[in-house]
Amino acid sequence: MLLDAAGGGTLGFLNFLLPLHDMSLEDMTPSFLSYSDGFSQLSDGAIDAAFALSGYPAGAVMQAAASNDLAFISFSDGMLEKALEANPVYSGVFIPKDVYGTESAGLAIGVNNMLIVSNSTSPEIVEDILHSIFDHLDEFAAQNANAKQIIPEMSLELSIPLHPGAERYFEARKALY
């Protein structure tokens, strides 16, 4: 099974999920590879599964899907709910079947990405950053497919407090969300 290169975030995520299934890393043979190398090896049949901690569509997964029939590994009944209950920072993520040309859609576990700045960053700069991103999402999404998944109001549901500049940005747009 592909895990990412040493120091990546996949291992922590997997170490959270495996015990929920009474499993550990000792139950498999992990391959610590770069993302692109791992999906290349999945395409070549050198590994059986790849764990992708990424937005979608992910280029390496799309490349693997171009020459292979891929399928999502489904959660056993009740296991996604158990995981979300164990750590409410995670959420269920629906991946339509047309994203990777799979036979059926996938239900994955995910976490929101955050843009983090120093507390000393001026509120005006933070507001400008959020304006540049969130007020131009259509333009951003035209350049980056992952940007289509950005939902600005999800920023109000993070597990850390908002910077004062972010609070001002969202307060000014409260009627939109």
Rank of each mutant, 00 (worst) to 15 (best):
Y56V: 07
Y56C: 01
A58G: 05
A60Q: 05
A60R: 01
A60P: 12
V61W: 04
M62L: 15
M62F: 04
Q63L: 07
Q63M: 13
Q63V: 10
A64P: 01
A65K: 12
A66W: 09
A66P: 05
A66Y: 10
S67C: 05
S67L: 08
N68K: 11
L70S: 04
A71P: 01
A71Y: 05
A71V: 04
A71W: 03
F72G: 03
F72L: 05
F72N: 03
S74L: 07
S74R: 12
S74T: 10
F75P: 02
F75E: 02
F75K: 02
F75D: 02
S76M: 08
D77G: 14
G78C: 08
G78Q: 12
M79G: 04
L80T: 03
E81F: 07
A83V: 11
L84E: 00
L84F: 01
L84W: 00
L84Y: 00
L84Q: 02
E85A: 15
E85Y: 05
A86T: 15
A86W: 11
N87T: 04
P88S: 15
V89L: 08
V89S: 12
Y90G: 02
Y90I: 02
Y90T: 04
S91P: 01
S91T: 06
G92D: 06
G92W: 02
G92L: 09
G92S: 14
G92R: 11
V93F: 00
V93N: 00
F94D: 06
P96V: 05
P96I: 02
K97N: 15
D98M: 11
D98G: 11
V99A: 11
V99W: 08
V99I: 15
Y100W: 10
Y100F: 14
Y100R: 05
G101S: 10
G101A: 12
T102H: 05
T102M: 10
T102E: 06
E103S: 15
E103Y: 08
S104C: 07
S104E: 13
S104V: 09
A105G: 13
A105D: 14
A105N: 10
G106F: 00
L107E: 15
I109T: 04
I109N: 01
G110D: 03
G110W: 01
V111A: 01
N113M: 13
M114D: 02
L115N: 06
I116D: 05
V117R: 06
V117Y: 09
V117M: 08
